[in-house]
Design a binder for these strands. Structure first.
Lengths: 338, 338
DNA sequence: AAAAACGGCGCAAACGTTTGATTAATTTTG
DNA sequence: CAAAATTAATCAAACGTTTGCGCCGTTTTT
């Protein structure tokens, strides 16, 4: 019992009209009369007609597919973002294909090439940790494939992007800690290549100067986000002459390493930690961060898709303006003593 | 500077041969001479030729796309599985499209229909929590779209599936607890609709009888996997006349709820917990499960893809045998006192 | 030496849909 | 009432690739 999907030709044959009329009828083209149009639509429905997307893609030279390249699908932040991208794209009848750079620049370059060859209509990218060169994205311009960066964005703004306002979020986090009385606050930051590291540092400085305190550069430590890197940073804080009483850490993974280490040394109660939320279950810890910066991955994903679709539908040669969309980050207080 | 991708026609024109020869040349068709073949391949390479997949899909009536339907992308287990599916499919030059049922039967039905309309070549499914009827998958047969279930599989075996040997894994878990001296062991199981619940229960019973103990049905409690459901189950154990000293719980999410509740009541030290691993960071807890059943989501994903591709490439009307692939689950001991 | 086989290639059709150009029938206009 | 405008539909080409069939020239077989 082999069913073949219904085609436009089939409908045309049954109604004794031409395929083009059927096509136009289904698209409410004005040159098809109301009577014929309704007949077409009814028959199409009753035969369960569904357009053959492959044929349409081919004909239009579009794929109705957007590509997504991100570092690691199984990181919670990204899996939520993906979830949003998928939901939003499906609503607009677009298909999504993913690929993971596993945080390697070379892999990212390959994937961009692959996506181009797959003829995606547009690309959503969260760049890898060690991406410093952006030529591979530049190349897409000549093929008219728009790119929107999200969350992990390049450090310049003549590109389209969606990201979080990490500066102000960090200010909020710092102010919260300062209000609680902390006077020496450490920061475990990410690699300098990441724009997000810059922003965190800016926020740190802004808050310090706003509160008329003195900025001590040795309290902001770069870290490669591994467990060892975290431990190194922790040790510097423990030996610091103005030992911090609170620490702002780059993300929850780093927070986990730090908490584990501090617990091992039994000094966990000497510190209050603020982190940037990636993990939903961090609050189940016994010594969770007192607050977390919520970066709303679902919202970022949605926005990124919508911007990308807008760019795809825009007549190609138009305007040179860049979308720089900022999603507000919020400080979520976990501290139950509050 | 609008670049157009190279086509076969273009190559043919430049070499003064026909498009069909180019196509055959690129595919090592025997009827094309070695000299011409190499000329074709060289020019193709130097022009960066990449086949227009849309055109091929259209021509062949295949999409080289497999659909994946699962409950929740952001659950760690699934995000890892997806990651594997993506990697494996990309190796084989297939594209993957995902959709989430969000654990609702109706949504799942809709998505299956949608996937069919998208003309996917095959489907990978992890069924939703409340799927009891499987007609929506049956329908795919007549369209010759093969389906492989993974992890969350239907409770009968005239389908293709990949799953974990949860029975033997549960036996391992139980034996481990029994060896540690526990004599009353509780189980927080999932809903009865899930095949995985059945298997856990079977394992529980097998171990009990193998060790010549008496099976007490009231020690195995079904739970809807929510926090409230977990608390209800926990209370039953606390009031139980043979209060268990160890509990096997359905998964890490349930384990989190349980640990949280037991900590609140300050009875956490009265229990040892074994869980099924979904969350990578569970071991960071202060009172983590003493052991976890590892279900190897990456491996399951890989196997599922390979089986599906095999079915896709198999001549349609052949054999009626069903793939029932079992991935061994292992018990991972977290207990540091061992 | 004629017949058969083969190697190497081109021709043309097909896949389903869209769309600019065209036609035919009807209605409106001056 | 003829010319122009409008409406409703058809025709045909196009998108890039694959593939069955046919053709021609050369080599092998009888």
């Amino acid at each position: 019992m082999q069913s073949k999907p219904t085609t436009i030709k089939e409908i045309a044959r049954l109604l004794n009209i031409s395929p083009s009329s059927v096509s136009r009828g289904l698209h409410d083209h004005p040159s098809i009369g109301a009577v014929t149009r309704e007949k077409i639509k009814q028959l199409a429905k009753s035969l369960n007609y569904e357009p053959n997307r492959a044929a349409i893609f081919f004909q239009k030279g579009k794929t109705y597919t957007i590509g997504v390249i991100l570092p690691e699908l199984s990181e919670h932040f990204f899996s939520v973002a993906i979830s949003a991208i998928e939901d939003e794209a499906m609503k607009k009848n677009y298909t999504v294909i993913f690929a993971q750079s596993h945080d390697h620049y070379e892999q990212e370059v390959k994937l961009v090439e692959k996506m181009k060859n797959q003829r995606v209509d547009g690309l959503l990218v969260s760049i890898s940790k060690d991406t410093a060169n952006f030529d591979h994205f530049e190349k897409l311009n000549s093929f008219n494939i728009p790119v929107v960066f999200f969350d992990r964005i390049p450090p310049f703004n003549n590109v389209h992007y969606v990201a979080c306002s990490l500066v102000s979020a960090t200010v909020k986090a710092m102010n919260y800690l300062l209000r609680k009385g902390h006077r020496s606050i450490g920061m475990i930051n990410g690699p300098n290549t990441l724009h997000a590291s810059e922003e965190r540092k800016d926020g740190y400085k802004q808050s310090i100067s706003f509160n008329r305190l003195k900025f001590d550069p040795s309290l902001v430590i770069n870290c490669d986000l591994t467990e060892n890197g975290t431990i190194n940073a922790a040790e510097k804080f423990l030996k610091h002459k103005r030992k911090p009483t609170a620490i702002v850490v780059f993300n929850d993974y780093v927070a986990l390493f730090l908490i584990k280490y501090f617990k091992k040394l039994d000094v966990i109660n000497n510190f209050e930690i603020v982190s940037y939320a990636n993990l939903p279950i961090i609050s189940y810890l016994d010594h969770p961060p007192v607050a977390s910066v919520e970066q709303y991955p679902y919202l970022q994903g949605q926005k990124a898709v919508n911007i990308l679709l807008d760019l795809i539908h825009r007549p190609n040669t138009e305007n040179q303006a860049y979308y720089n969309a900022i999603v507000d980050a919020d400080l979520i207080i976990n501290d139950t003593n509050e």
